[in-house]
Design a protein around this nucleic acid. Structure first.
Lengths: 193, 193
DNA sequence: TTTAAATTAGACCAATTGGTTTATTTTTAA
DNA sequence: TTAAAAATAAACCAATTGGTCTAATTTAAA
């Protein structure tokens, strides 16, 4: 294996460019150009464009999972504030990025979720794995009496992250974090015990 | 003006096919084929694909605005239940559609909001006009003491509709209304006075 | 050291992309 | 009734799409 090119490097390029431009707006040739590889090598690594996208989703999902784990483990705050700081951090990142891209998982789910079964499946899988990590923190918050027990930890985690995805629409057409900040404030008022 | 083809009919075709497949995944030729018009006529009506999409967004936004007004005016329920029934109706429609498409405005905003200024502007405009109508009902609910006054009617309307958009991601990758129903239940618990 | 397999390389392919052009027909206004 | 304008029609365009093919090179195993 591993001759000249590194598969992860190609996936990283794919992640960047697909996250920003979407799946159908990006051609294989653009990936080749930005990754600096010839077509033969690309199709040596990946069966098709769809297979490539699937692996990009997987790569991004796994990378973020590790990052999430670290953040939650190292947090010095209480569970509810850990979560609030986490979403604030995501908003900050999107601001640094000039609100250009949003989340690859959300973008792919909305653009291709009903078009390609393999991508829907992979997208759902990565999202669900994130949700498990978030639900862990929610559960701890519930035990401490910080977060409402009227809904399960998983339901609240899903409410949080799906709700956060909902703010990307306005972020992109408004090019502002205003509504995201309002969402953060309102949501964390709503879910507290 | 009005010779052989009807512009609204072309916009309706464009709405259907772009809502389902996205902007970049749909070519002009597909529109021509489904609308049964030659290319010359298309470019007589529309300057470009981008201009066409912009008019599709406008057409859909205005049509829905009229529909919304009617629904809210005819409602026999209290404001908060009017809103809850409205979102339940939207979920029902998406189920009938087999969860295939979601909302054109949300799809376009996420796919093209940071790629084409004209589409972002039009998308935002139509969304904001819907929000005004929803905020009216929220405001009445606040006056009646049904809905929390901790946030403005506009903020709550935005929280509702953006939150609803957030549920489309899971709807599409999960092909189910389960999370939408949970969202509906939780959200209307949260916003009540 | 030889051989088979994996990888790299990019020319090549048919199909499609958004858009233009030219010609014809239809409508409107003078 | 005629001329100008508007609309219809589709052939045509260069550029790009995802993907294949053949050849050369590199690596690993025998």
């Amino acid at each position: 294996m591993g001759y000249k090119y590194n598969k992860e490097e190609i996936l990283e390029v794919g992640y960047q460019v697909i996250r920003k431009n979407g799946y159908h707006h990006v051609g294989i040739n653009q990936i080749l150009k930005e990754a600096g590889i010839p077509k033969g090598s690309f199709y040596n690594f990946f069966e098709s464009k769809e297979d490539f996208a699937k692996q990009v989703i997987q790569y991004y999902g796994e990378g973020n999972r590790k990052w999430l784990k670290g953040i939650f483990k190292d947090s010095k705050e209480t569970p509810i504030n850990t979560l609030k700081s986490f979403y604030k951090l995501l908003i900050d990142y999107n601001e640094e990025d000039n609100f250009c891209s949003g989340c690859l998982i959300n973008n792919m789910g909305n653009e291709t979720g009903r078009l390609y079964d393999s991508l829907a499946e992979e997208t759902k899988e990565q999202f669900d794995q994130w949700l498990d990590l978030i639900a862990d923190v929610v559960g701890k918050g519930q035990e401490l009496g910080e977060i409402t027990k009227r809904y399960s930890a998983k339901e609240i985690a899903n409410y949080l992250h799906s709700g956060f995805y909902g703010t990307f629409f306005k972020m992109k057409v408004d090019r502002s974090r205003k509504d995201m900040d309002t969402w953060l404030h309102m949501t964390f008022e709503f879910i507290k015990a």
